[in-house]
Amino acid sequence: MATLNDYLLVSGLLFAIGLAGVVLRRNIIVVFMCLELMLSAANLSLVAFSRFHPVNGLPDYNGQMLVFFVITVAAAEVAVGLAIIVALYRARQTIHTDELTSLQG
């Protein structure tokens, strides 16, 4: 049987992969996907905790509620984020983060 530690390790590794993608990739859409990976990694650990810490003999559904909300909010976020990317592309003709440096001080 897989232990809680196994799930947390896998979840943490997925998170690390997402983080690496965010830091290393230059395509803003890919960066966005990596963010989704990181969110999902968090979801995995939430569900794992929910399963491994039962309440009244049932999995802790509060954790799964949180996952449910995260997924919903992530969907909304993706919609808005992609709209922003589209608007950005219209304005700047690029989604390459190296060229999007107007915040430079």
């Binding site: 799930y7 989704e36 569900v47 399963r51 999995p59 799964q64 449910f68 997924i71 969907a75």
Partner: peptide, 19 residues
């Protein structure tokens, strides 16, 4: 699939459906 393995069937399914 991991979600399903954790008996979180609903979350697993919306993971597929939504994501």
């Amino acid at each position: 699939a991991l979600f399903v393995g954790l008996s979180a069937f609903f979350v697993g399914i919306i993971q597929i459906l939504v994501y």
